[in-house]
Amino acid sequence: MFERLPRLDAAVDRAAGPITRFLHRRLGITADQVTWASFGVTIVAAAVIARGHLYAGLALMAVGQALDHFDGAIARESGSASLAGARLDTAVDRLSEAAIFFGMVAAGLVSLKLALLAFTAILLLTSVSERSRLDPGCKRFVLYLGPWVAYPILFEVIFAVNLIAYVIGLLIVDIHFQRRMDALGGDLDTVASRAAESEAEERQPLPAPRSA
């Protein structure tokens, strides 16, 4: 939940330790099961918001986000944390945001155009955040401010923050690539293609071991 704030993440892990151990050791619940349970609760939250019950929907969304913390905690507790698990978690997070956003559109809290733009900005940021390590986390959390700030303004904030973070993220990835080109040196006229080749070689998966 707080991957970008490791100290806070560790503190929440410690506080929720007994619940995590109970869920995993006593009930045998896996991280992926918690991920999908969190998604289910969020879908219900989106439906409740769409029916016009904003506060009940926000409360359910909070339950979904709290559950979302436990999938990572269980994965760490059971030693099953993996890149595939983290990617599933990210994909489910995006689906959850889509559901909540469209619940709010259905409730007439925000226009479809603004919800689509905010969601597009979040998707763009997600597409580079693994490489740029930049994600300000300005997504569903902002929606809890709804009772005090108008939703169109909150969606504009989500759009702006994520779009700016995306542009900065692209530049961070570019700077990593520039360092690669500078390290390669040689003919400057062909350095981009040589650096692209070396990067592609590094990203290729290792060949699978042959069976006897």
Binding site: S127, R131, V173, D189, A192
Partner: peptide
């Protein structure tokens, strides 16, 4: 005529 990477970081095409 210099090298350009139109779709980087999504594609390494030069």
């Amino acid at each position: 005529r210099y090298e350009k990477m139109p779709w980087y970081p999504y594609s390494a095409v030069v």
